[in-house]
Write a protein that binds this DNA or RNA. Sequence first.
DNA 1: AGTTATTACGAATACGTTTGCGCAAACGTT
DNA 2: AACGTTTGCGCAAACGTATTCGTAATAACT
Lengths: 331, 331
Amino acid sequence: MAKRRSTIKDVAVEAGVSATTVSHVLNKTRYVSPEVTANVYKAIEKLNYKPNHMARSLRGAGTKAIGVIIADIREEFFAEIVKSIEKFCNRSDYIVYLCDSEDKIEKEAKYIQSLLAKDVDGIIISPVYSNTKISSLLDADIPIIQIDRYSKNIDSFFIGINNKKSALEATSYLINNDSEKILFVGYNDNVYTQKLRREGFLEAIEKNNRKVEYNIVSLDYMDNETLCTELGNAIDNYPDFDTVFCTTGKLCYNFLKAAMKKNLLQSQKLKILTYDNSKWLDLLKYPISSIKQPTEDIGRIAVEKMMNYLNSEEKICAESIHLDTELLIRK
Amino acid sequence: MAKRRSTIKDVAVEAGVSATTVSHVLNKTRYVSPEVTANVYKAIEKLNYKPNHMARSLRGAGTKAIGVIIADIREEFFAEIVKSIEKFCNRSDYIVYLCDSEDKIEKEAKYIQSLLAKDVDGIIISPVYSNTKISSLLDADIPIIQIDRYSKNIDSFFIGINNKKSALEATSYLINNDSEKILFVGYNDNVYTQKLRREGFLEAIEKNNRKVEYNIVSLDYMDNETLCTELGNAIDNYPDFDTVFCTTGKLCYNFLKAAMKKNLLQSQKLKILTYDNSKWLDLLKYPISSIKQPTEDIGRIAVEKMMNYLNSEEKICAESIHLDTELLIRK
DNA sequence: AGTTATTACGAATACGTTTGCGCAAACGTT
DNA sequence: AACGTTTGCGCAAACGTATTCGTAATAACT
């Protein structure tokens, strides 16, 4: 075996022309007579020649690959976004490196290094924190796009949702529907989305005339098991809430698990609202209202922007797009 | 800006040595005196030099990248496997190309081409069908590993579960717990896992003495909406079943959606069993028993095997490993 | 002192492409 | 017939690295 992959030179010899001509035929980069063209294609066919992307890239063309860095591919929210990114990249014959940061800045940094070393044409990232300086990204001269989360230290286009507004709307809805004591469950403020969602929540409470009590649970990112335990503790520490507002689908899932263990879900008295519209919500024994994020749009717009950059039709600039969410009420 | 990335030559000049020496320092591939070594590292630091993987790869080393081809990253089953693959690849400093075939052979073929052109060091694939010949894979001289699904036309290591056995066990359990009329919901026989799961199901029925009726729904892969409609039709066409056996989590989800629309889930009379243990199952209003697949192990073993191949400690051979599943009963 | 072994490094080439430059032949123009 | 223009293609350098030779200087032997 050990069949050597045939090169452009093999094709050239087989077709009786120079490698230059083969290259030009392949890339349609200058005129080549019909007969020669035909011969070249015949040779390519015969030798089953496939251009070597690496050599091509080395010469200066792009790699036709982009990196995508997200926190956890198992979360529906990220899976949907990645699916969308993948789909639209594929249409432009780009291929994606999947980088799962596990929400750890060290792994994030390592992946950025890897991606740059691999000479990706661009990076789409949902940064772990909103305040970490990723120096390597700064002087990389490839386009960066931030999705979902935004770090002010990365000078780039951003596509995500209107976090504050959506939280404000949702909280207002809760208050207007007789919530009097709300448990707000979110991650710590270093995460871009979390800070804004909390601000929206607080603003809604402030603006409202009626008396509303609340407690805030602020967590670090962790695995489901630990999260479940933590939320169990939270339930014990802050009793008597009539409403729960979770800032991510993962948090909501684990809250439900914890609540179930404590038999909190028997009486249908508790009102629950969460970000992320898991497709399973409709099938739960318990009604959960949700804030649906336009995941497909986020992925699509990110890729569209990236392609615009890469074809240099568009100059890179630090614009931001905040899409609206949809509040889905379940009773 | 447009800062040119510094090359090994720049480092060489800066350090007052030849590129050869820099290379040897970097790769520790021959003795270099301590002083020179120090100088080289100083120059590297100063110029912020990062080796160019592409040039390195072109020269013959691998690309330190592998391709992973699966059907749909949004399915929990695949997401978990990919997460696991990603995790273990990362430990060996490999990075993964995510390829979402959407269960379409054309997209699968296209991705294989892309991956080969990109010179990945190996490919981990869950093939769409068990009988399609993917000629490009055959004469690629990189290691291939099949996961979950197996195609006999791809001569490779395989890691997945014991489909027939698990289906047989599960079905036996159903029969021994008073199921008398079972609706079997699966995909068509071209998909490796599906054929075996059905065979296991049928064998269990055959072996059993008690009278058991059954109907089989055989579907093609499609999106959730269509699947839901199809399953709604199936429910109408085959009435009176007391048990449903779904061969994948996605099918189960859509069956539940369809069943809910038809108010089939009100009386807790229907027994439901499904492959794939979605984390949401515990929270459903309806008890669903499940066959849990060892997704993390599948990913881990696939990567371990791949790494063994790549370090050529191990010769490639067409071995198969079939892991056992776990039957989780919910009432 | 002469030979050999060892140490410490450099020059040159190869990997598979793309591309600037240039050249020969055919054609058109006066 | 002499010259310019076009047509169609090849030569060779370049991309950034790894590696096979080779070599000069020193050390270690007879």
